[in-house]
Amino acid sequence: MTIDFTGKTVLITGGSRGIGKACALLFASLNANVIITYNTDQDTAERTLTELGHSGNHGLYQLNQSQPKNVERFFNKVLQHYPQIDVLVNNAGVYIEHKINEVTYEDWLQSWEDTIATNLNGVANLCFFASRHMIHNGEGKIINISSRGAFRGEPDHPAYAASKAGLNAMSQSLAVTLAPHEVSVHVIAPGFVETDMTSELLSSEAGEAIKKQSPYNRVATAEEVARLAAMYASPGMEFTTAGIIDLNGASYLRT
């Protein structure tokens, strides 16, 4: 099976590093036009854009998706330069520690507000504009990056777990609504993933314990998540819509 995205445009939020960067590099290597967003680190984003090469019509945009008006302005701007968005990969998110027995009430409220605004509301708004565009075009793929935390919980990051559980439910609801329009919605739920942001933790004693959660004695690579995203985005995978695929190396099992 050969996957080729020639002529297709893929939008990846949080595409400058980690899972998003791995997705961007893979889709670009498969001949897609790749659009990546970043929130604050423009230098890193520009380096990633350079790594995508010059063979496609790649683009870079700043986006703080926690603000609804930002999402609307972003889509209007992107669609001035790209006639069609074929795939949306919702990868951007925040992971804020807020232990209920340690933080103040003010910090507790702020952590919930910031997390839900980005991880759930922001993704919902991106799905709104992308799906309206895809319905008009008669096809499209939305791939949402969730987490095993949606199922097992995140004791030190409860808002993150709640946001990802909400993301799962929203994705399945949208899948039902959008299927008659040939737009499919897919969810990937990784466990720990080795990225530049987790490398220090994973190289520590605590990291060794995290790796041992899987019988493979390791965590996922960002490239493994990217390959699954590319598979979902390819033709012929539409009937997997509403599915939530675990990618955690059997570190957490559910039925």
Rank of each mutant, 00 (worst) to 15 (best):
Y160V: 11
S146I: 12
K141W: 02
P180D: 10
E154W: 05
A189T: 14
P158Y: 09
E194I: 05
P180R: 11
G153D: 02
V176M: 05
A162S: 15
G153F: 06
S171A: 15
S163Y: 06
S163A: 12
K141Q: 01
I145S: 10
D196R: 15
L178K: 15
G138P: 09
T195K: 02
G166R: 00
D196K: 10
K141D: 00
V185P: 13
S146H: 15
P180H: 10
P155D: 06
V193F: 04
S171N: 14
D156G: 13
R148Q: 14
R152Q: 15
A150R: 04
Q172D: 13
L202I: 02
A179M: 13
A189N: 05
R148V: 11
A162N: 04
V187G: 10
E182I: 06
M170L: 15
L174N: 04
I142V: 00
H136W: 04
G138F: 06
M197N: 09
G149T: 08
V185C: 09
I143F: 01
S163R: 10
A150Y: 10
V187W: 04
H157W: 03
A169G: 14
I142A: 00
L202E: 04
G191M: 05
V176H: 06
N168K: 14
L167S: 03
H181I: 02
S184A: 13
L178I: 14
E200I: 02
I142D: 01
A179I: 04
Q172R: 15
T198S: 08
G166D: 01
